[in-house]
Design a protein around this nucleic acid. Structure first.
Ligand SMILES: [Mn+2]
Ligand SMILES: [Mn+2]
Ligand SMILES: [Zn+2]
Ligand SMILES: [Zn+2]
Lengths: 140, 140
DNA sequence: CAAGCAGTTTAGAATCGATCTAATTTAAGA
DNA sequence: TCTTAAATTAGATCGATTCTAAACTGCTTG
């Protein structure tokens, strides 16, 4: 492990981890920086792992999975199931929906205001709604 | 393989396969009968495979997957991705949405009329919308 | 109704995303 | 600095799904 100057972005990310109750380890800091310093993103574990490698962030695949799940648990990320073959993680945790481009596997945000959902039926037995997912699949 | 009287349900299913251009093999007939003779269903490959075994339908797991995909291609089924760990196949191919009960993994239909979606944004670049999926996840 | 053959089935191997294990390392408080 | 719980890791393992390639079968032809 090499010493490194602490930038503003690093600080933001560090605070973010601390206030979530996650230890700011070297690996989590590096991954969080990749995830949260480029606007809203939708990444797979594999993609993030490769991105880490490209940026000389030395981290194991298991740690990428651990971090993605830890971040999701702390609401820094949200997990999206679109394709039964893999999971996406979304850095936009606010209320919004998605376009899914079937051939490229890419996701694009749709702000919640841009879709009006009415008459949403209440859950049977009064159970709690965890989330409403709307996915517009695009044949491209 | 044992000879067996052809019932009305068998006939329906047989016609259904024929008119889809699928050869009505013993395996497809048996699986189609399980799938389409009990109202709307949401099944996984594994579940259908076990159901077949329980009903003394001798069929391999590979054939269950083949049939589910063949049926889906012919619009006799629709595939739903909800959980990244497995695929569901829906015998209701009409326009409708779903409740998903997270602990049991069960799906329940919501008729299209019961949700009003307005202002649906058009796909970027005028691409074609393949489908709009709405999943209401229930924490139970 | 036999033959031919494309379409189908199948057992078992292989794939692949994801998770687990158990050993090592590290963050952080005392 | 010491201690300890938390985190990381390489590699094994898991489980749903797909693939392979050999055997079988529904259907058309002669
Ligand atoms: Mn997950
Ligand atoms: Mn599929
Ligand atoms: Zn998003
Ligand atoms: Zn349904």
């Amino acid at each position: 492990m090499r010493a490194k100057k602490t930038s503003t972005a690093d600080l933001t990310v560090l605070e973010r981890l601390r206030s979530s109750g996650l230890r700011p380890t070297r690996q989590r800091l590096a991954l969080a920086k990749l995830l949260f310093s480029q606007g809203d993103r939708h990444v797979t574990a594999e993609a993030l792992f490769n991105e880490a490698k490209d940026n000389r962030v030395d981290v194991s695949l298991a740690t990428v999975y651990n971090a993605l799940h830890d971040f999701t648990e702390k609401d820094l990320l949200r997990e999206i199931s679109i394709d039964s073959s893999r999971s996406y993680f979304d850095t936009n945790v606010g209320d919004h929906y998605h376009f899914y481009f079937e051939t490229s596997g890419r996701l694009m945000d749709i702000p919640a205001e841009r879709i009006a959902i009415a008459n949403l039926p209440e859950a049977p037995g009064g159970a709690e709604v965890a989330r409403v997912d709307v996915i517009i699949r695009i044949k491209d």
